[in-house]
């Protein structure tokens, strides 16, 4: 499955999904509450340390860093103009710290791990009729639907082109949506015929 995950065996990779998410939420909260550039700088340093610990290869973080830098420079310039230098620095540090931390969690956590963690957390909800194993099913079904709809989108665009209407929003969106809904109905019938949704 395509994802942003970067395989590895470091402490960060091996840390439980729940712990990583908790840490991220705590950090995000701290970043919002703290207003001093000094403390924000420290937090930012901690996150960068996490990258070092996780031994994320340069080709991965270079790309992220470049994107982040461009964003930060842009935001800094804008905020400086609107609010002054000190405020601009605070905003930029917040931005870089929060984004880098969130990205680190995503980089070091495979989708499958998150899915099984969520399935585990959902287990107590069983008595309310929630079926934990349907989490993985939802992921699979949606990714499958993305593949199918991408194919439909391509066909519809070609058809619009063939009619010389590639610039028309409705000539693309309406047939695309109609076929999307038809696909949904057919998928619903196929799922029902295979016992999905029956309890």
């Amino acid at each position: 499955m395509i994802s942003a995950h970067e395989p590895g065996t470091s402490v960060v990779h091996r840390a439980p999904v729940g712990a990583k998410l908790l840490a991220l939420f705590a950090l995000a909260a701290a970043v919002f509450v703290l207003g001093s550039p000094l403390w924000l700088g420290v937090l930012c340093g901690v996150v960068l340390l996490g990258y070092a610990l996780a031994r994320i290869p340069a080709r991965r973080w270079l790309r992220t860093a470049r994107a982040l830098l461009i964003l930060a420079v842009f935001v800094f310039a804008l905020q400086w103009w609107l609010l002054g230098a000190q405020a601009a620095l605070v905003v930029c540090l917040r931005l870089v710290t929060a984004l880098a931390a969130a990205n680190l969690v995503t980089l070091t956590t495979p989708v499958d791990d998150v899915v099984s963690a969520v399935e585990r957390w959902a287990r107590p909800l069983r008595r309310f009729g929630v079926r934990p194993e349907s989490v993985g099913l939802l992921v699979g079904l949606t990714m499958q639907a993305v593949a199918t709809l991408s194919g439909i989108a391509r066909e519809v665009r070609e058809a619009a082109k063939a009619r010389g209407a590639e610039r028309s929003v409705t000539a693309f969106a309406v047939p695309f949506l109609v076929r999307t809904l038809r696909h949904a109905d057919e998928l619903g019938e196929a799922l029902a015929a295979r016992g999905a949704g029956d309890r």
Partner: peptide
């Protein structure tokens, strides 16, 4: 309506929004 029909609509529309971004 069967849960399967609801499920399919939800899943396919989530994919639809994704494809709006990917395409």
């Amino acid at each position: 309506s069967l849960p399967a029909a609801d499920l399919a609509r939800t899943v396919v529309f989530a994919a639809f929004i994704a494809v709006l971004g990917i395409f």
